[in-house]
């Protein structure tokens, strides 16, 4: 590991100041991703600012009936919080589908949003990778791309965002509360938080260097009894998603009033299926309808050489997650 200075701060403002002034400084929260990246030589900070003890770990209700989860609340505490379990069970399911209990006990919500791709080339500094080293090329394009994206990839990168939690947050129209380097508060709609690779795959999201995630708000909804997170993976636990689906419905006597579908493991960001959602509104919640929605959700998928299976898998997973949401 590159030698680094380690600082512990007592306020977000102090942390933001230090990191904002040094391009090679990083916030460290749970450390479950950053430390790995440092050990592999993928990220080489010379200064770490420990924010894990700042009091940003509250989970509380919002006036509108939604919930706000602190950036530094642990993934496990968030998933098990009564407000989340009762009001937003899909978020709870998504978090618990990720990583392992030990990792979730350390991992924070802010860190989860900021975790980097698991593309094997990104983690191996001996290989070309545009995301790690802009301009060096993309090894996955003609290499191993079984885990790669089927939506929104570019010639420069086909990596997927690895988070489960973020897929649920995308479906729930969360809002990310951020403090800027200038000390302003800024709100980022979840759909705008992560970005597609385009020509700058080194940028995972729209957060500027030094900006800090403070909390994540989830507006009130009526999805709780009729939502489901489904994850398909290579082993029963402790594996990233091949594909995953966050599906939520609001039903009125068997008719769909509102629907949300987000996919994980298929793009550089959690992938919302707006067209399929739109098509579902006003329809009867039955298997046929869900099948059709699934088809629409995947109609524009563009697989690479090794990941064609994801199209079929995701289509079936969407239909299945919708059925489970509707409990049919």
């Amino acid at each position: 590991m590159r030698p680094f200075a380690f600082k512990r701060v007592s306020s977000p403002a102090d942390a933001i100041k230090i990191v904002g002034e040094n391009a090679d400084a990083r916030f460290i929260a749970g450390g479950t991703n950053l430390i790995d990246l440092m050990k592999e030589g993928v990220d080489l900070p010379d200064e770490l600012v420990d924010i894990s003890r700042l009091s940003l770990s509250l989970v509380r209700s919002l006036p509108d009936g939604g919930v706000s989860i602190g950036a530094l609340a642990k993934n496990s505490d968030t998933a098990n919080h009564p407000l989340v379990r009762r009001g937003f069970p899909m978020l709870s399911q998504a978090i618990l589908a990720g990583a392992s209990p030990q990792i979730r006990n350390m991992a924070t919500n802010g860190g989860n949003l900021m975790q980097r791709t698991r593309c094997a080339y990104f983690y191996d500094v001996a290989t070309p990778c545009n995301k790690r080293e802009p301009g060096s090329g993309c090894s996955a394009k003609d290499g191993l791309n079984r885990y790669s994206a089927i939506f929104g990839w570019s010639d420069s990168c086909s990596a997927v965002h690895p988070s489960d939690m973020c897929v649920a947050l995308a479906a729930l129209d969360a809002v990310v509360n951020v403090r800027t380097v200038e000390g302003r508060e800024r709100k980022i709609k979840f759909a705008d938080f992560h970005r597609l690779p385009e020509n700058a795959p080194e940028k995972d999201n729209t957060l500027a260097h030094g900006e800090m995630i403070i909390s994540i708000d989830i507006p009130k909804n009526n999805f709780a009894p009729t939502s489901h997170y489904l994850k398909v993976r290579d082993r029963a636990s402790y594996a990233f998603a091949l594909v995953s689906v966050a599906a939520a419905l609001e039903l009125d006597k068997g008719t769909i009033k509102q629907a949300r579908i987000a996919l994980g493991g298929v793009a550089h960001k959690p992938w919302r299926c707006f067209e399929a959602e739109k098509m579902l509104v006003g329809k009867k919640a039955d298997a046929e309808t869900f099948q059709e929605a699934a088809k629409i959700a995947l109609q524009d998928a563009k697989p690479l050489s090794d990941n064609g299976y994801k199209v079929k898998m995701a289509e079936r997973a969407v239909a299945k997650a919708l059925r489970r949401s509707a409990r049919i």
């Binding site: 094997a120 191996d124 001996a126 290989t127 090894s139 290499g143 191993l144 636990s237 402790y238």
Partner: peptide, 25 residues
């Protein structure tokens, strides 16, 4: 064990990428 034949290199040399079964399996 995943090998990238163009690079001639093993690409999943870790316990996150090489899947030994876990208890849940």
């Amino acid at each position: 064990t995943e090998v990238d034949h163009a690079l001639g290199r093993i690409m999943n040399p870790n316990l996150a990428g090489y899947h030994v079964p876990v208890n849940a399996d």
